[in-house]
Design a protein around this nucleic acid. Structure first.
Lengths: 377, 377
DNA sequence: TTGAAAGCGCTAACAG
DNA sequence: CTGTTAGCGCTTTCAA
């Protein structure tokens, strides 16, 4: 015998297969879906009694608002996009956290996308975020040259905040530090310690793509600015006639390790090195050890970004610290203002850096000798 | 004189204020919106000529598909949710990267949410993700006790993969390592070096909430399992009668620093310590230095997770390494299968760990003495 | 191969 | 205070 119950009243789909909608809740509560929506969404006016009935029905049905549908009609997603160049770099991890904390406390969620310093992936990431209709995007540009997609994005009127790195000619807010001044100060610290042959390791791009020709500045404003600061410091110290100790490497400690080994193997090696990134300084530590160079006796080091391990190594690493968490937080704040409709002209938010002097900087051996002579009459 | 041009044909909204829609493209291409949508979305059948016309029109208008609207009708978002306990922990940073790489190569985007080890924030994060209708969620549970929301989520039929940490009784895939065995092996390494008084620092919770009473195991399966492994190793070595050197601290290096100082100040201090996390080992290095203890002479150390700095400190840190990137990648893979409809019973994916022996482990001083005597006859 | 029309779940006018 | 109605931009039958 067949099961007659099924002929005329097909079973509704079992619970797990279809999520409850406003209409379901409304039906159970015995009100119109508009009223249910008002009660559920917390807008308009609903009588307390109705509100309770709807709430009960929603609870019974396990109703969860469909953010997609809501976004569809409101045109807003309450979501911010964050495009970072390398989520594994502690600097960006902290930026991400600061950004997320501020966004969340303002009722926004965050979609994070990683680009691995690749402009093509960055363009794709931006496309994804725009496709998802995020309300705004914060982005650390992988390149200041390949930025056509950024210009188009800004031209389309969508809020964009640049993180850490600027892009020349782009009408967008920038949140970061004064890289040139910070680098200059870091190198001046080395000059003050008596160093003359000061190298710099600058990071650019990931391992994915070939680097530009030797000596050409990286396609990164941050790197460029730090290189400028390095040169500023050298020339005000009258040190610009010396051999070129600048090396541009990938953002990998292995690349820095090779670079520092090569530098130390020079006929006239540098006595100090300034690293534009914490990852690179990791490579310097390893490479110096490879070369048998002792820090700070044979090589002084100033790094960028105060990574958590920097004060447990021996010697502790002197760093130019930048407020990564605050940069992320400030970027979210700026972006939220733009999302809220602020159309004032682009602002540049510059956060303070600080030099943290630790044990990795000492006078170069030659300078020590010079000091020692008059000290023993 | 008034401007008559505006009376009968109001200007259309200027470009930046309204994004082009399928309808706009269709109108410009002279086809129906259904056809334009087919051409744009790459589904159905469209003649090559029409396809080109539509493509041109789309290009001219700067059309970008509205993912929200698409999700609305397809019920899919091509987005995966990732809930991590601490984005700043290098372990989770690597997991995030592995997860993202696999997701992206399968055409999925990722929404990352940080919970700071707080179950309440975890519940909220899951709610957000569900509201946004992500196709699936991978999550590293902040607590194995407060997991009601996880059970509800699974009951609702939505794909969920647990990352790194399991939750007892939850019918969900788990991707991680065998924490108990790994911890046991790490501690056995210490035992083999001759240690008897072996401490353990286990992490639980962030600084946000008070920790449980002293000695109570943390509400984390990972921590629990590592503690079990520690005890396993101690008891098979016949070392369980010794004083209790286990300390449960927050996931902060400062907490570990205080804990190790306290341990080293004991009348009979431990000669070795096993840390359940790289952050904690950072604190151990600092705290040991505070106490004037030299590693590995006065204190041997085995850490968990091979952070990038671990082989540049002196001595380099012996670690139990877990494949963080692969864990993230495997989790994405598992989740994608579930999203694709795999309803086989929950699987547990266990990835291999490896002990990386470096310089932070040596024989305890007492053991050294014992060895030295017969060595000089 | 193409078009017309119906909706996805929700919000926003506008009446009642 | 509540219900009716009309979409948001897209995909998807179903006919033509």
């Amino acid at each position: 015998m067949a099961r007659p119950c099924c002929y005329f009243s097909p079973m509704p789909l079992p619970e797990p297969l279809r999520a409850a909608t406003v209409g379901d809740v409304a039906a159970l509560a015995g009100v119109s879906s508009a009223t249910a929506a008002r009660a559920l969404g917390g807008y308009g006016t609903v009588s307390p009694r109705t509100r309770d009935r709807v709430a009960d029905a929603a609870h019974a049905l396990g109703y969860r608002a469909n953010g997609i549908a809501r976004s569809m009609v409101t045109g807003q997603t309450s979501t911010l996009g964050l495009v970072v160049a390398d989520i594994e770099n502690p600097f960006f991890a902290a930026v991400t956290r600061g950004f997320g904390d501020v966004a969340r406390s303002a009722g926004y969620d965050v979609m994070v996308v990683n680009t691995d310093e690749d402009p093509a992936r960055e363009r794709a990431a931006l496309g994804v975020l725009v496709g998802r209709r995020v309300d705004g995007v914060a982005l650390s540009p992988a390149s200041s040259r390949e930025a056509g997609h950024l210009h188009m994005h800004v031209a389309s009127g969508q809020p964009l905040v640049l993180l850490d790195r600027g892009v020349r000619g782009l009408r967008a807010d920038v949140v970061g530090i004064d890289n040139r001044a910070a680098a200059r100060r870091a190198v001046e610290h080395l000059v003050a310690a008596g160093h003359r042959r000061i190298a710099m390791l600058a990071g650019a791009g990931s391992g994915g793509r070939p680097l530009q020709a030797e000596g050409v500045p990286p396609a990164l404003m941050t790197g460029l600015d730090r290189i400028r600061g390095y040169r500023d410091a050298l020339s005000s110290a009258g040190l610009d006639g010396l051999p070129d100790y600048l090396r541009v490497t990938h953002f990998r400690s292995s690349a820095a390790r090779a670079a520092i080994r090569e530098l130390l193997a020079l006929p006239v090696p540098p006595t100090a090195v300034f690293c534009s990134d914490s990852l690179l300084s990791l490579g310097v530590l390893a490479g110096a050890a490879d070369s048998g160079a002792v820090i700070p006796v044979d090589l002084s080091l100033v790094a960028f970004d105060d990574a958590d391990w920097m004060d447990v190594v021996t010697p502790a690493v002197t760093v130019m610290d930048q407020p990564a968490y605050d940069i992320g937080a400030a970027a979210a704040d700026r972006l939220l203002r733009r999302v809220a409709g602020d159309t004032a002209r682009p602002r540049r938010v510059v956060l303070p850096t600080s030099l943290v002097a630790r044990g990795s900087v000492a006078a170069p051996r030659t300078a020590v000798r010079r000091v020692q002579r008059p000290a023993a009459p």
